[in-house]
Amino acid sequence: MSVVADIVFWIAAITAIAGGVGVIAARSPIYSALSLIATLAQLAVLYILLNAQFIAAAQILIYAGAVMVLFLFVITLLGIEGYPFLGAQLPFQRPAAVILSALLLAGVIFFVAESPHWLTGVHGNFTQQLNTDNVRAFGVQLFTTFFFPFELTAPLLIVAMIGAVALGKRRAGGTEI
């Protein structure tokens, strides 16, 4: 990795973590959602550093774009700002959360220290394809290996639409049940 790439990585990584902290620390849900957009955008930068340009573009378009806009719509439409923060519901929720988070962190540190490559699986020819011709490799995979799962999402989307209509529509009398 070149020096420039290193610098970009650190900027993106630190901003992503800062955004993540912002999601849980912000008082207003709007600010939380905006922080999440920052995190997602920085993750897209990290994907580009990993030579996954297509995923980076999809990340921006779908997550930072479509999904988060929907989140903001829901937050503003429900006017959730006026709701009081309910806080911890269970008596031991806070200490339990601290202990479990510490365990998770210890586990991650242990594995990374044990072997930095524990997350790397098998490198097939896929990785090499990715380095040369990313979007094309993706397209070829989508229309060959993953052609059928891709087609199968068609009935899935139809069923989702039927669900929205069947559960949301009003009865003939005009009353909503």
Partner: peptide, 26 residues
């Protein structure tokens, strides 16, 4: 015989069943 198809088929059957479970809106 592909994990992808297992997952999408599972979502298809589950989504239809969620709707059917809540079908009796009264």
């Amino acid at each position: 015989i592909s994990l992808m198809v297992i997952f999408i088929a599972l979502e298809l059957l589950s989504l239809a069943l969620y709707i059917l479970s809540g079908f009796e809106r009264s």
